[in-house]
Design a protein around this nucleic acid. Structure first.
Length: 198
DNA sequence: CTTAGGATCGCCT
DNA sequence: GGCGATCCTAAGC
């Protein structure tokens, strides 16, 4: 009986559905609160990547680096960027597909002291405004690659209101520039880069 | 304000 | 050998 109740309540009010295309998940995550060991904030910028997407790490099939992308959804795919930084993705769709959402920026809300300890003293605007900065502030490294987003140290709260969402071309890629799969919380001051005007 | 270069790892050609 | 889903610093306007 209890199980029936839970599955009825489950749909979207209490958790985000990762078993859908990455573009939908990227939109659904805008305004959600993500924390890692209690440190985190409101997601204000995401990008979607898919298997049939020349800009995606999964485009050419599984490798040791992108293996987690081909695993079950709602897990963390962490990769090293430019040999230096770490970047955090959420795996989408079904196991074996190879889709994900890159978390590009959050608005810091909790654990700001810990963030500053990891990143140094700098304006609040810059602490988590970019995938590499956010990963450093939240202590995301390869050690968290493959972890479930529904278990500690991760915690995700779905948005509690309907935010206006902007979209535009993804950042830092040279392929599939025409696909507008970058999403942002309209009016946020915490973007890694501004969105092009209409 | 904009631009240029360096750091440095995994995977592709 | 080359090129990124990046960021920081320094120099130029």
């Amino acid at each position: 009986m209890v199980l029936i109740k839970i599955s009825l309540m489950n749909s979207s009010a209490h958790s985000i559905d990762f078993h859908v295309p990455s573009e939908q998940v990227a939109r659904a995550l805008i305004g959600a609160i993500v924390t890692v060991d209690g440190v985190g904030g409101r997601i204000v910028e995401t990008e979607a990547y898919d298997r049939e997407d020349p800009a995606s790490h999964s485009y050419s099939g599984p490798t040791p680096r992108n293996a987690v992308m081909f695993g079950p959804p709602a897990h963390a795919y962490v990769y090293r960027s430019y040999g230096i930084h770490w970047c955090l993705n959420f795996v989408c769709r079904e196991a074996g597909h190879g889709a994900g959402v890159l978390i590009r920026a959050i608005e810091p809300l909790t654990g700001i002291d810990a963030m500053r300890q990891r990143r140094g003293l700098e304006p609040l605007k810059l602490l988590c405004s970019g995938p590499g900065r956010m990963a450093q502030a939240l202590d995301i490294t390869h050690a968290k690659n493959g972890m479930s987003l529904f278990e500690a140290p991760f915690h995700i709260e779905p948005p509690e209101e309907a935010y206006d969402i902007m979209c535009g071309p993804r950042i830092g890629i040279t392929k599939a520039m025409d696909v507008p799969w970058r999403f942002g919380l309209a009016g946020s001051k915490f973007f890694s880069k501004p969105f092009p005007k209409t």
